[in-house]
Every structure is written in structure tokens, then in C-alpha cells.
């Protein structure tokens, strides 16, 4: 793949992060879809039972991805946690204009927004929800899977209530994430391509990140090619 025409590029999503993202696609996405089926229970016994089996299989993929990513890429996880918990007055400004998205989508107008880091305010908030919600969903989910005839009723009841509420919130967030991810086509290409993005595009979307958190690659002699 040649990117020469685009000018300099920045690696936004290293291979480990992209693989984890695939883990979420194969784990969280089917679990969320089947979760709604299990909540509303439409259709026959066989259909709902199939949804349950997929839900459990997908949950296993999701859990395994999250655990492996945490263990093997602890620095990525810590960087993520640092980012999602750092807020300042720029976030207030960003949230007040909705990140400029409503103006862009409905009025076709690009307005100036406060400079964001790698994650914008909305992504950070969703990141917090994902982090805690993911932990809660995983823990309660496995309790519901494994301990149902065994653990006390009240324990199971509250595990189920938490699983349901957090699942609905995160499930709906997921649909929003998918929509915005496709809407920002460059981001989509970066995540599902080789993880890189033109520097100019990153400067437009994530100026604070480009300004502070990236550095030029140590060039190998005679070329700029490096293994990702």
C-alpha cells in the first residue's frame, strides 16, 4: 500500500489495538445483539435458545480479548484509562457544541471546536462507561452463567438487574459508536486498515494529540518503511 500522495502518516491504532477491536467486534457486537433478543424474547424457544448460545460464546470471546489485551498490552490499557479520566474546560466547550456534529450533519456547516486529544469528550465519556460497564457486564454475566442454581437468589437477581441496565446502555452506545465510526470515514479506514491515518487528518481531528503525544519514527537508513 502506498500513501505517498497523502503526505506524512501517523500510526493511530497499533496492531494489538486493532486485534483487540476485532475481538470486540466478534465478542461484544454479537453479545449486544443477542442480549436484546434475550431481553425481549421474541420468537420461538429455539430462536431465543440460539441467541443464548451465541450470547455465551460471544461473551467468552469478549472476556478473553479483554483479559489478554490487559495482560499483554498493559501500557495501551493504562494510556486509555489516563485519557478517559482527563477532563478540562475544553471538554465543556466541546460538549456545549456537541463536538460540532449536529451542525455538520443537519446544517452542513463546519464550526470550530475546542482542540481534542486522541479521544474527544464524547469518546472519553463513552470510554468510562465502556470500562466500568464492561467490567460489570463481564462479572455479572459470568455469575449469571455459572452460579445460577447455586448462588443466593437476591445475589442473582441484582446481578441480572445490573447486567440488564448496563447492557442496554452499552448496547445503545455501541450502535452510536458504529454510526459515528462509519460517519467519520477516515477513522473507519484507520481502524480497519493498517491503523495509520494521514497526519493532516489527525491534526484536524485530534490536534492536542498530534501536538503533544506523538513523535517521529526513528527512520531506518534509506527509507521510511518500518514494520508496524
Amino acid at each position: 500500500m502506498s500513501h505517498d500522495s497523502d503526505g506524512p502518516r501517523v500510526l493511530k491504532h497499533p496492531l494489538s489495538s486493532r486485534l483487540f477491536h476485532w475481538g470486540l467486534i466478534l465478542g461484544f457486537l454479537p453479545a449486544a445483539l443477542t442480549g436484546f433478543v434475550l431481553w425481549l424474547k421474541p420468537g420461538s424457544d429455539g430462536f431465543v435458545n440460539l441467541a443464548m448460545r451465541i450470547h455465551i460464546g460471544a461473551a467468552a470471546i469478549f472476556t478473553l480479548s479483554a483479559v489478554l489485551y490487559t495482560l499483554l498490552c498493559l501500557d495501551r490499557v493504562v494510556a486509555f484509562v489516563r485519557r478517559i479520566f482527563s477532563y478540562d474546560d475544553r471538554d465543556v466547550g466541546w460538549l456545549l457544541v456537541g463536538g460540532g456534529y449536529p451542525q455538520k450533519m443537519f446544517l452542513g456547516r463546519k464550526i470550530p471546536v475546542p482542540p481534542m486529544g486522541k479521544l474527544n469528550s464524547g469518546q472519553k465519556m463513552m470510554g468510562v462507561a465502556m470500562l466500568f460497564g464492561g467490567i460489570v457486564l463481564t462479572a455479572t454475566g459470568w455469575i449469571l452463567y455459572a452460579f445460577i442454581p447455586l448462588a443466593p437468589k437476591a445475589f442473582i437477581y441484582w446481578a441480572d438487574q445490573l447486567h440488564l441496565v448496563v447492557g442496554i446502555v452499552l448496547g445503545l452506545s455501541l450502535f452510536m459508536h458504529i454510526f459515528l465510526g462509519i460517519y467519520n470515514w477516515g477513522e473507519f479506514k484507520a481502524m480497519f486498515g493498517d491503523g495509520t491515518q494521514p497526519l493532516a487528518e489527525a491534526e484536524d481531528h485530534n490536534p492536542a494529540w498530534v501536538a503533544r503525544e506523538i513523535e517521529p519514527v526513528q527512520k531506518a537508513a534509506g527509507g521510511r518503511q518500518l514494520p508496524a
Partner: peptide, 21 residues
Amino acid sequence: GCDACKAFCPTDAVTGKYGAV
């Protein structure tokens, strides 16, 4: 559809697949 009842039913009188009503 959690199957808890089946774990306590002495006669398998509860029907319905795991997950379904």
C-alpha cells in the same frame, strides 16, 4: 429462562429451553 427452576424440579415438569420462557 435461567433454568434455576429446573435445578430444583424433582420431576422435570418445567419445559422451555435455556434462555426462553
